[in-house]
Design a binder for these strands. Structure first.
Lengths: 349, 349
DNA sequence: TTGAAAGCGCTAACAA
DNA sequence: TTGTTAGCGCTTTCAA
C-alpha cells in the first residue's frame, strides 16, 4: 500500500536498458538477450523489488493468467467435501502453472449471469464449472462459442470438455440386491434440481429395474444437504407400513443421519436394515458400524480438469476431451456383506 | 471468445456522446447528466451487450474490486468445514458488494510469497487471511504498512483487524471436570504448527491447571487432519497403563475416530469414557451417541470479515477493529452430562 | 451538462 | 541484440 511500487520504466533506467528489454527478460521471451544484460535486468528488478502490475499486464497481453471456478448450488460448499476437494486440487494445479483462481459461487439459476460477466469482462482466461446444471442455458452457449471451459461433472452436450466419474450407484444398489434385499429405499441428498442428486436417483431406479424389482415410490425420500434431513427421511421411512430392509443414501451425511434414526428405533445395522452411502467422507470408516460407501475421485477430477483447461489455454487440444474416472464401492460393515460372509463361513466350517 | 466485444468507444458512438459520458453513466458518477442522455447510453450499452473490460478498468481506476482469500495450511480445506464455510459466506458478501474473490492457498510457509505477490502485483484491493500463523513474517509487515487486511482468526499484533471466536476449550474441559473427570486426554487435530490446533492444546492445559489438575503429558496425542489419526491416537491412549476417563478431541473428525476406537475396545461412551469434540460438523448430532461439541460461528466470521474489509476499502474505519464472536458448548450425549442428570433424577425421585 | 485529452503500466511489432 | 513506438480500453481532470 504505502510505498509506491517500482515500474518497469524504473527498472529499465536502473539497468540501463529499454523497457522492452525488461519485459523480454522478465517474460523469458525468446529474443536473444545477452547473458550480461539479462543479469543486469534481473538484478535491477530485484533491487527495486519490482513486480509487474497485474492489470497493466493483462490489458497489454490480453491474458489474465486467471482461472474461474464456477460453483453451482454453492450452498453445498458448506457440507459437501467434494467441492472443497476439487477447489483444493485446482488451487494446487493453478499454483504449479502460475495461474490464479477466482471463485464464483452461483446461488440460484435466476442470477446465473455473475459468472458470465466474468468472461464478458475478460477477467479470466477460462472456466472450470463444478456441478454443471443441464437447465443452465448459458453453458451450452459458452461451449459453442468455443470459450475455454472444462466441466467437473457432465451435461448432455457433445462438444463439452469434462472430467466426470463413473456412477457407482448401480454397483451399490446391485450389491444390496445381491445381498438379498428387495425393499431398498433411497434418500436424495439434495433437491433433484441438483443435477448429481437427480442422477443418483435415476440410477437407483435403473438398477432396481434391471434387477426386475419394481421401484416402489413410497421408498423414496427427498433430503437436502443436511444430516438432519437424512434423519427425518429415515424416520418417515420407518414409520411406514412396509419398511425397507436396506437404504441407499444419496451421500454419507444423509447416511449418517439415517443410521442415527435406525439406531434410535432400536433396530440393528446391518442386521435389520442395511445401508450404503456415497462419497466416502473422512469419518465414514469410523461410524458405528463403519459405513459402506462409494469413493469418488474428487481430487483427481479437480487436477485433471485444471490441467485440461490450462492445456486448452496454451492452444493444445487435449487428447481426450471427456475423461471418465473410476469410482470404488467400499464394502465396510453397514451393508451387511461382511456379516453375510462370516455367517457363510460359519456354515461352511 | 469468438465474437469481439464492444468497447466504450462504440457505445459512445452509438449513443452519440463521448466516452467520458459513457463512463460517467455506467459508473453512476455524480456528474449531472440529463436523464435523456443517460437513457440513450444505457440503451446503447444494452444493445451492444457491452461489459467494460476488467483489466482496463483496473488499470485506469487503480482498483480491482477483487478480494484475496489467503488460506494457510490449505490441505485442511479438504476436511475442515470451517474453511469452506468462511469461503462460502465470503463469496456471498462479495457478491452483494460486487467484488470478486481470488483464493490463494498457502501450502507451507516456505513459499508463502504467493499471496504477497498478489498484493505486490496489485491484483487485489484487500486480503482476508484465514488461519493466520504467528510465525509468518510477512503478515505483520503488511499490517504495519497499512495494507487493507482482515484476519479470520488471531495473531498477536496490536494493529490487526480481525474476526475471531472465543475459545470454548476451557468451557469444554471444565465441563468434563465438573462431571468428575480428572484423567482427561487431548488429541490435537493437526500438528501444533497449525495455530488453532496449538491454541486448543494450550487452552486445554490451562483449563486443567486452573482446576488444580496436573496435566499429564502422557494423555496428549498429536493427530493430523484425518479421522484415522484420531482412531490411532485413541488406541494408543487405550493401550496405556492408566487410561483416561474422558477425552477432549481437537475437532469432531478426530472425536469420531476416537469414538470408533473406544467402541472397538468394547468400552461404552460416555459411561466408560466421555468425549467432547469441537466444530459441530453436520454429522455431530447423529453420531452414536450424539457428540457433545463446540459450535463455531464460521459463517458469521466470514461475513463480518468480508464486510469489515470492504468497509476498510471504502475508507471507513470499522467501529471495532477486533471482533470476538461467541461460541457455544453443545451438550449432547457423548460427554455424559445427560446421563449424570438422569441418574441424579433417579436418585432424587 | 458534456467533451478533449492525458494517462494507468505494460506488451510486442517493427526498426535499427 | 536492443530501442522506438504504438497501442490495450478505461477513468478522470480540466476546460468549455
Amino acid at each position: 500500500m504505502s510505498r509506491k511500487r517500482a515500474t518497469s520504466h524504473e527498472v529499465a533506467k536502473r539497468a540501463g536498458v529499454s523497457r522492452t528489454t525488461v519485459s523480454f527478460v522478465l517474460n523469458n521471451v525468446e529474443a536473444n538477450i545477452s547473458k550480461e544484460t539479462r543479469q543486469r535486468v534481473l538484478q535491477a528488478a530485484k533491487e527495486l523489488d519490482y513486480v509487474p502490475d497485474a492489470a497493466a499486464r493483462m490489458l497489454a497481453s490480453r491474458q489474465t493468467r486467471t482461472l474461474g471456478l464456477v460453483i453451482f448450488d454453492a450452498i453445498h460448499l458448506q457440507v459437501d467435501a467434494f467441492i472443497s476437494k476439487v477447489l483444493y486440487s485446482l488451487t494446487e494445479v493453478s499454483r504449479e502453472h502460475d495461474f490464479r483462481v477466482i471463485v464464483e459461487a452461483v446461488e440460484d439459476l435466476g442470477r446465473d449471469d455473475a459468472y458470465l460477466s466474468l468472461v464478458q469482462a475478460k477477467q479470466i482466461d477460462g472456466l472450470i464449472v463444478l456441478n454443471p446444471r443441464s437447465d443452465d442455458s448459458q453453458l451450452p452457449r459458452l461451449i459453442d462459442e468455443g470459450f475455454p471451459l472444462v466441466l467437473v461433472g457432465k451435461i448432455k452436450h457433445p462438444g463439452a470438455y469434462c472430467v466426470y466419474h463413473k456412477s457407482a450407484v448401480r454397483e451399490a444398489v446391485t450389491h444390496l440386491i445381491s445381498l438379498g434385499h428387495e425393499r431398498i429405499a433411497h434418500i436424495t441428498y439434495a433437491p433433484i434440481a441438483y443435477r448429481s442428486a437427480d442422477s443418483r436417483l435415476r440410477n437407483y431406479r435403473r438398477a432396481l429395474a434391471e434387477a426386475g424389482i419394481n421401484a416402489d415410490e413410497k421408498l423414496i425420500r427427498y433430503g437436502n444437504y443436511t444430516a438432519q434431513s437424512g434423519y427425518e427421511a429415515m424416520n418417515s421411512l420407518l414409520a411406514a407400513k412396509l419398511r425397507p430392509t436396506a437404504v441407499f443414501a444419496g451421500n454419507d451425511t444423509i447416511a449418517i443421519g439415517a443410521m442415527s434414526a435406525i439406531h434410535r428405533h432400536g433396530l440393528r445395522i446391518p442386521e435389520d436394515i442395511a445401508i450404503v452411502g456415497y462419497d466416502d467422507i473422512p469419518v465414514a470408516p469410523f461410524t458405528i458400524p463403519p459405513l459402506s460407501t462409494v469413493r469418488t475421485p474428487a481430487l483427481m477430477q479437480g487436477r485433471l480438469a485444471g490441467e485440461m483447461l490450462i492445456k486448452l489455454l496454451q492452444g493444445e487440444k487435449p487428447a481426450r476431451p471427456q475423461i471418465m474416472l473410476e469410482t470404488e464401492l467400499l464394502i465396510r460393515e453397514s451393508c451387511g456383506a461382511k456379516l453375510a460372509d462370516s455367517q457363510l463361513n460359519r456354515v461352511l466350517s
